[in-house]
């Protein structure tokens, strides 16, 4: 159920958009109102979640460290894996975000004969890299629908992505790779028993939703064509707040767009928030300089204390008179 449920939800959402535009002709709702609402909800949701995170307590340095800490000058520090400076943190963050170094370290436990052993498991890293980079390239390429005149770098990106020159319209490599990546990530959750056991429906839903978006987009490009110039007019209308009627566009576009809107609304309240979240993780964005700098808990309450020295000062005479041992240091400081 945790697998089939999310799949059914995504299929129903796609069917909803299809029926409402193909048969009920609610073009303005699906082409103008819902996209605006989705963008607003996305931005509000992002800000709410970020502010909420920002208010949570990070009193101390808790970076995850994966190498030698900064120490004596003759001990080589792992500057990226155990950064002690802002520059080190920046470098580590950039590499983490662009290349997923922490996934590169993914391990799996294996029983070899009677011994337990750890081996590296790179497939998650490769699948994640494949999906995220394809998605980034696709989203950037989509800007051609939103920018007029189209900047040159987009044309270059399109040419590079389509350089295989297969068929017309040209086959984009990123379209193949995003599906390969997503199918792999899905297969991983389904086939590895331990991963399947810990996967919930909220792990499957984003995968199905993204697959739905990618497949509807791919179908739109290579099978049921849409009038791209017409789509661009509608998108530019939305962006300039002078909406153009989307009535003449094909149904498949509304399915694609509606699934994207669902993603936008869902995004801030889901695990997909790991995208902005990575920048806010104290295990990643702090320098490990606990030995150089004293980090005092900023909201330490000024507790009124009565030290032993003060105690002895107050009762010293009485203690002495009944023969209780006195702390010599305190006595000496007392003179």
């Amino acid at each position: 159920m945790k697998v089939v449920g999310p799949l059914i939800v995504v299929v129903l959402l796609a069917a909803l958009a299809w029926c409402c535009t193909e048969y009920l002709h609610w073009y303005a709702l699906f082409g103008i109102v819902i996209p605006y609402v989705a963008v607003v909800l996305l931005i509000v949701g992002l800000v709410v979640r970020i502010v909420r995170w920002a208010r949570s307590a990070v009193p101390f340095r808790i970076p995850t460290t994966c190498g030698q800490q900064k120490s004596l000058p003759w001990i080589k520090q792992a500057k990226l894996d155990n950064p002690s400076s802002k520059a080190g943190v920046f470098g580590r963050m950039v590499l983490e975000v662009l290349t997923f170094r922490s996934l590169f370290r993914n391990n799996k436990v294996e029983k070899r004969d009677s011994k337990l052993g750890y081996t590296s498991a790179k497939w998650l890293f490769l699948g994640a890299l494949l999906f995220h980079w394809s998605m980034l390239i696709i989203v950037i390429r989509h800007l051609r629908l939103a920018l007029e005149p189209v900047p040159d770098f987009l044309v270059v990106l399109e040419q590079a992505d389509g350089f295989l020159q297969v068929g017309l319209p040209l086959l984009y490599i990123s379209d193949v790779l995003i599906v390969v990546g997503l199918v792999f990530l899905l297969a991983r959750r389904l086939t590895i028993k331990k991963v399947r056991y810990i996967s919930l429906s909220v792990d499957f839903f984003p995968l199905f939703l993204l697959l739905g978006i990618a497949i509807s987009g791919i179908v739109m490009r290579y099978a049921f064509r849409v009038d791209i110039a017409g789509v661009k007019e509608v998108v530019l209308g939305l962006l300039t707040f002078h909406p153009v009627s989307p009535d003449q566009l094909s149904t498949i576009l509304f399915v694609h767009l509606f699934l994207v809107c669902v993603l936008m609304v869902y995004f801030p309240w889901s695990k997909l928030m790991h995208a902005p979240g990575i920048f806010m993780s104290p295990t990643r964005n702090l320098a490990n300089n606990s030995r150089e700098v004293r980090h005092v808990n900023p909201w330490n309450y000024p507790v009124k204390v009565h030290t032993y020295a003060e105690y002895q000062e107050e009762y010293g005479e009485k203690m002495k008179s009944v023969g209780l041992p006195l702390d010599p240091e305190v006595v000496s400081t007392n003179g």
Binding site: L143, A146, L147, E148, E233, L236, L239, T240
Partner: peptide, 12 residues
Amino acid sequence: PFLVNAGQPERD
């Protein structure tokens, strides 16, 4: 995308 297009007339 909104800022870049702000104030531009309808374009086809």
